[in-house]
């Protein structure tokens, strides 16, 4: 009997002391956190991709709360969850969020193995960053894709894959969240996080970055922008400009009419998420494509000063 009593008392005492210690420490060392941070964190995707520019979803949540207290959620965007998530966040914080345009990662190089003849063999670490410091790459183009796949490794969502035949990365537009990790990983800034139009995320892009003069670029790559200005002339919206020997389509001004795509002699301008053009003029198709795009979409401009874009081969 005694034994049982002692055991009960001892255990009870330990339990009591431990409970007291826990109680006081939790009081003493309590970290006060805005409960809204936890709530916001709940609705965030939890992928911790860093695409928003903050260290993980927790960082984004506290940034949102802070921004809400300051009066506006502007500039904060979860690229993974997109509009629906940001609306939920805004609801928790009693704010309104403005519609942000859909974005996609776009690879601006079309120098496939076929278009860009190989001039040397790169025999080093399979890393674009290291290849970029070694020489201009395996081809004579100092601006094009190096093909070592740093972007593929950077993508957390499996949205970029290397196409073995072309040697270029391809973005799966259904998986891409425009988090920008690939664009950061690319030492040549070939990948652009570009504002697209409509639910289908459509857009027209010059897939070349070659700033060499036309003749030099042509020698290096059959699908290089040669800055012939034809696209500039055909564009009725003043969306295309040639700078540094390469054309660039301003996504804010472009209405996806695809005239430039047809005009480009080097086939450098490509439409994304749009049906292939019929061989010759198809003005109706272009017009219909343009109409929904004209809807009130407010895109945030990506890399404002960059004005060039270039043509690519093949559709």
């Amino acid at each position: 009997m005694n034994v049982i009593l002692i055991a009960v008392i001892v255990l009870g005492a330990i339990g009591l002391i431990a409970a007291l210690v826990l109680y006081f420490t939790s009081k003493k060392f309590a970290v006060k956190e805005d409960p809204r941070i936890g709530q916001v964190n709940e609705v965030l995707p939890g992928a911790n991709c860093g695409g928003c520019g903050f260290p993980g979803c927790g960082g984004m949540a506290s940034a949102c709360v802070k921004a809400a207290d300051a009066g506006s959620l502007e500039g904060l965007n979860c690229p993974v969850g997109g509009q629906p998530v940001m609306e939920k966040v805004a609801a928790i914080l009693g704010m309104k969020v403005e519609a942000s345009a859909p974005k996609l990662a776009v690879v601006r190089c079309n120098g496939t193995c076929e278009n860009r003849p190989r001039t040397v063999i790169y025999d080093g670490v399979k890393s674009c960053r290291i290849a970029n410091t070694t020489c201009m790459g395996e081809t004579a183009c100092a601006y094009g894709c190096l093909g070592c796949g740093d972007c593929v490794n950077a993508c957390q969502f499996g949205a970029i894959k290397m196409n073995e035949t072309t040697g270029l990365p391809e973005v799966d537009t259904t998986k891409c969240t425009a988090c920008g990790a690939c664009a950061k990983a690319c030492p040549r800034n070939i990948i652009e996080i570009r504002t697209m139009k409509g639910a289908k995320k459509m857009g027209v892009v010059v897939e070349c970055m070659n700033k060499d003069k036309g003749a030099v670029a042509m020698k290096a790559c059959k699908a290089a922008c040669i800055a012939c200005q034809k696209c500039v002339k055909v564009c009725t919206f003043d969306a295309i400009h040639v700078e540094n020997n390469v054309a660039y389509i301003d996504p804010e001004k472009c209405r996806n009419c695809r005239k430039c795509e047809q005009e480009c002699p080097k086939k450098v301008i490509h439409a994304i998420n749009m049906p292939a053009l019929k061989p010759k003029p198809a003005p109706e198709a272009a017009a219909t494509a343009a109409k929904p795009a004209a809807a009130p979409v407010k895109p945030t401009s990506p890399e404002a000063p960059k004005a060039p874009a270039a043509p690519k081969t093949e559709a």
């Binding site: 190989r118 001039t119 040397v120 063999i121 025999d123 290291i130 410091t133 070694t134 020489c135």
Partner: peptide, 8 residues
Amino acid sequence: NQLTVSLS
């Protein structure tokens, strides 16, 4: 012949 390029 294509030359090989790598770092030192």
